[in-house]
Design a protein around this nucleic acid. Structure first.
Lengths: 274, 274
DNA sequence: GTCTGTGAAGGGCTTCACAGCT
DNA sequence: AGCTGTGAAGCCCTTCACAGAC
């Protein structure tokens, strides 16, 4: 085997090891990979609902706001055990707590980022992390022209400090935002520093030891897939420039008036699970 | 229906429309969604191989360098028709051309980006696009503090110019790098401007008309999934801080000496298709 | 012998439809 | 009546194993 996730995901057989696992969580294994991805998406919507003061939400509403079908959503949630009340719906904040716990977000994750170039700096300054339970605690680069500079409220440190810093900071996630040809080396260093979650924005596929989880986001791949799907949709030969009048029905399923969605509109799930 | 891709992908039934399609391409439909994603990944590796002067590559080698299994790779390529020579392997540049054509990358895609904040500027400056067949032709923002400024060799224009500019520039792909609450509005404008491929980095799920393809990359989701998978791997209660000595076998499957991969190592496929 | 292409088997995920609770 | 939870069916995809071409 050389695969990461057998792409079809898998309810994880049971890593042997700890068999009598911790208390609160009834079933953490046996959650399909695809479901996990969507749980993260639901979580975000639930956060909005909480902010908005909504207490109860139906599967139909939550599903619409998340861009999935309601049956799929109910199935997904059912993997966490009973979460709603029949005839009523789901308790928003309770459900949110349940998902957070399941995803392991209750222990606050600390993130280090390697590669303080354009993308790295953008990611460092990206507020979405903190807002969703991740704290950026370290920035590293190998270029002396960048090390020492301040990005947000963090100073860029030299990558040689990575190992020690990761342990001191108790980092749990490493993000790679370096050029492609440095990615594997940086990855090795992150693994060496004891991290077991790695998110890479380089295009190269990384190889990591068995116990390390890695994911990759390749922007060019995203666009290429987009390109293909579009070509396929439009019947392959998009000659005629789009007409000026684009008046097609388009569903408004914003939170609040999410409802039975009419007909001809699509919503995008996260790329990871359309 | 409110779904985008029924998540399981689908070999596309046939959009009716053009039935006697263009010449060269024998079968463009009927390619599984999952395969499309990986084709984009293979393409990148093939590019490296070309640069490197390699002429022939075996499924085993290409697969290893792409982070997938060789059987899967052969199956994927088989959807494009015969591409290799039995007992020999694949002609690198021929295969590359075939995939490019299939993905519709031969017509050069032109990309406009909305949202010239941190992320937007980083994306605009990201060389990976051009290197892989996409040309960034326009940058837009709504903030007067940013419009007019130069990012790379493009000036940031006001979003009100979007519609006209898209048509003049013949853009085909729109990228959204705005704050979440502006995303749907920007998306609407892009669609209004005639684009039918949209890539969004906002967390909100966008709704688009039937004929538009949209994808979304949500960084927080990526990390949350990472978090979960890691928790699952490590037996869920990662109490003991990682030991100092991390000496595990790790496969080196870089291009060139890609080979029969030993044992205990994983490689990450693109997030989109692990 | 080597390596591709592919039918068939197996598994995961989605969808449907309804049982069951309030 | 309304909405959740879930077996079962079906689909898509992966994996296996080998036939077939060089």
């Amino acid at each position: 085997m050389t695969e990461q996730h057998p792409t079809q995901g898998r309810p994880l057989a049971g890593v042997s090891g700890a068999e009598g696992l911790s208390a609160a969580t009834p079933e953490l294994r046996d959650i399909p990979q695809a479901t996990v991805t969507r749980l993260a998406a639901y979580l975000r919507v639930l956060g909005l609902l909480v902010d908005q003061g909504t207490h109860i939400v139906s599967s139909e509403e939550l599903a619409a706001a998340s861009g999935v079908g309601s049956a799929k959503l109910r199935k997904d949630l059912s993997f966490l055990g009973p979460n709603g009340v029949r005839g009523v719906g789901y308790d928003v904040s309770r459900l949110r707590g349940r998902i957070e716990q399941t995803l392991g977000l209750d222990r606050g994750h600390k993130v280090v980022l390697v590669g303080a170039g354009n993308l790295g700096q953008a990611l460092a300054g990206y507020g979405g992390f903190g807002r969703r339970g991740f704290e950026m605690v370290g920035l590293f680069d190998i270029d002396p022209a960048v090390t020492g500079t301040q990005v947000g409220d963090l100073a860029v440190r030299h990558i040689d400090e990575l190992d020690q810093a990761c342990r001191e900071l108790e980092a749990t996630i490493g993000v790679i935002a370096t050029p492609d040809d440095a990615a594997q080396d940086v990855c090795d260093r992150l693994v060496g520093a004891g991290l077991d979650c790695i998110l890479s924005f380089s295009a190269t596929s990384l190889d990591v030891p068995e116990h390390v989880e890695s994911r990759r986001v390749d922007l060019a791949v995203e666009m290429q897939v987009l390109s293909f799907n579009s070509a396929r949709n439009t019947g392959q030969v998009p000659v005629s420039p789009p007409a000026l009048d684009h008046t097609e029905p388009r569903t408004q399923v914003r939170i609040g008036h999410a409802a039975h969605v009419p007909s001809a509109a699509k919503r995008n799930g996260s790329v990871i699970a359309p």
